[in-house]
Design a protein around this nucleic acid. Sequence first.
DNA 1: TGCCTTCTCAACCACACGGTTATACATTAC
DNA 2: GTAATGTATAACCGTGTGGTTGAGAAGGCA
Lengths: 109, 109
Amino acid sequence: MIQLNDANATLVAERFRTLGEPMRLRLLQALRDGERSVGDLVDEVGAGQANVSKHLQLLHRMGFVQRRKEGTTALYRIADPNVFRLCDLVCGGMRDDLDEKRRLLRPAR
Amino acid sequence: MIQLNDANATLVAERFRTLGEPMRLRLLQALRDGERSVGDLVDEVGAGQANVSKHLQLLHRMGFVQRRKEGTTALYRIADPNVFRLCDLVCGGMRDDLDEKRRLLRPAR
DNA sequence: TGCCTTCTCAACCACACGGTTATACATTAC
DNA sequence: GTAATGTATAACCGTGTGGTTGAGAAGGCA
């Protein structure tokens, strides 16, 4: 791991926090199989349009997605597929944690 | 990636958000080379005792650290070393993003 | 020009969360 | 027993943030 001094910790945390939002994760998931317009994403995740736009802005500023304009529509796509490896790692940790907790619930069989 | 339905997205986001805090990242970093007591961590990260305790509680509840009591002192340790792989991935993404942004700043040399 | 669509932006509200303070609890020493 | 040490917990406060609403910009089309 990169040395996490105080400055780095803030930057890294900022990125983790960006992924720490269900709606944003669903947007990334929706973008997984290709480019989507804002309107498409609004339909897919079932949220307000301004809300989706704001989340996409943040994902864009953090470099998780890229943007392309075509007429009046804005098309977003995944910038770095490693995001999904992050999700996989987190899911793996979640499974292990649940297994551990389950194990502790029955100490002596 | 595991299918991120609405329920999953909330759980995964919860874990990302737990890592999205500079102080908690510094606690994890401090625990990297072994078990530490709460008092040790208070000295290392330079924060209030109640604050450190609260952050450790959350890290514990999320399964990132494990706890062991010895007399009156509580000893914490990393539960899943994969946390650091997560940090590495995030740092890598950060570097790539910065490179990309730097590239865009000088379009035609 | 005028209207519609698509998206962004600003303002607002409610709530969650990080930090601090003070207090309670548990263990050890005396 | 009391005192001291090491943690956890509760209460509070200020700030940050997700969601909504409404207005505004930018293009497409009759």
